[in-house]
């Protein structure tokens, strides 16, 4: 595959931007979580790209760790969502705004 390094990085940047926009636009916490996953994947793509262009496997190892932590995060995050839903009967992030100053 002979595609310029920049192309991968630009793909990564756009994927990240989409995830970012989605996180800020959507109210549904579950979807917001998916957007977080999108951003994590965007970063993973960048890591893998750099690993290849520098010929260093360390970038791939970091991706591996990111995946582990992402899995952990999903587990805990979804558990929190379930707990919040039990209390509020809602998955809207805007409903959880008692910290308003």
């Amino acid at each position: 595959m002979n595609v310029p390094t920049n192309a991968y990085l630009i793909f990564s940047a756009l994927l990240f931007a989409i995830g970012m926009a989605g996180f800020m636009i959507r109210r549904n916490v579950i979807v917001m979580f998916m957007c977080v996953e999108l951003m994590l994947n965007a970063v993973n793509v960048a890591f893998v790209t750099f690993a290849r262009s520098f010929g260093d496997v360390a970038g791939q190892v970091i991706v591996f760790f990111v995946m582990v932590i992402a899995a952990v995060e999903v587990v805990v995050g979804l558990a929190i969502i379930v707990a919040i839903y039990r209390r509020r009967e809602s998955v809207s992030a805007d409903d959880a705004s008692v910290m308003k100053g």
Binding site: F23, M24, A93, A96
Partner: peptide
């Protein structure tokens, strides 16, 4: 404290 709207998505704007 008015900046603290309590909306997570507003805070995300700050992160962005």
């Amino acid at each position: 404290s008015k900046a603290q709207t309590g909306y997570v998505r507003n805070y995300a704007l700050g992160v962005a």
